[in-house]
């Protein structure tokens, strides 16, 4: 079955006819070719696929694209300024070495950005709790927490 979806992705309106079973992450990666959003576990555990839907961090591998019909979606590609200047959270991850292989990073950054609106003065413990839905298999999280703390303060 085909369904029509229309949504605003990183400020641009997109419309497509897609299979009803299309996951939001596949719509973003395969149809829109925005491959910054990663698929890690594909079972809604690792958080590499985190994007914002109407300002909320969600796991795009666990949502049908049709569920985001009419929504505003922001992916990692939507964070930097038009001239390429990194978003403060991206800059903080770079500055504090909050990544090694980088696979989880787009999800980490999107998750951290949602936190900015909710817990701008988060403690280390609150940051760890808030990043519970994002897994990193390289860093041991120390520098991620540092980066998020700096990004929230920036």
């Amino acid at each position: 079955m085909t369904v029509n979806v229309t949504m605003k992705v990183n400020g641009q309106s997109v419309t497509a006819a897609i299979a009803a079973s299309t996951l939001l992450v596949d719509f973003i990666r395969e149809h829109l070719r925005l491959t910054g959003t990663h698929v890690g576990c594909n079972t809604a555990q690792c958080g590499a696929c985190t994007v914002h839907v109407n300002g909320r961090a969600v796991k795009s591998c666990n949502l049908l694209a049709a569920q985001a019909n009419g929504a505003e979606v922001t992916t990692i590609e939507g964070l930097a300024a038009a001239d390429g200047t990194m978003h403060p959270m991206q800059a903080a991850f770079k500055e504090h070495h909050g990544l090694q292989c980088g696979f989880c990073t787009p999800g980490m950054v999107m998750s951290a950005c949602e936190l900015k609106g909710k817990l701008p003065n988060a403690t280390d413990e609150q940051i760890r709790e808030a990043l519970d839905g994002n897994m990193c298999r390289c860093t041991g999280y120390q520098n991620i927490v540092k980066a998020v703390k700096a990004g929230l303060a920036a």
């Binding site: 809604a44 958080g47 909320r56 961090a57 969600v58 666990n62 839905g133």
Partner: peptide
């Protein structure tokens, strides 16, 4: 419940 992203949906 779950994690933050799950609680958002």
């Amino acid at each position: 419940i779950g994690d933050r992203q799950v609680r958002n949906v």
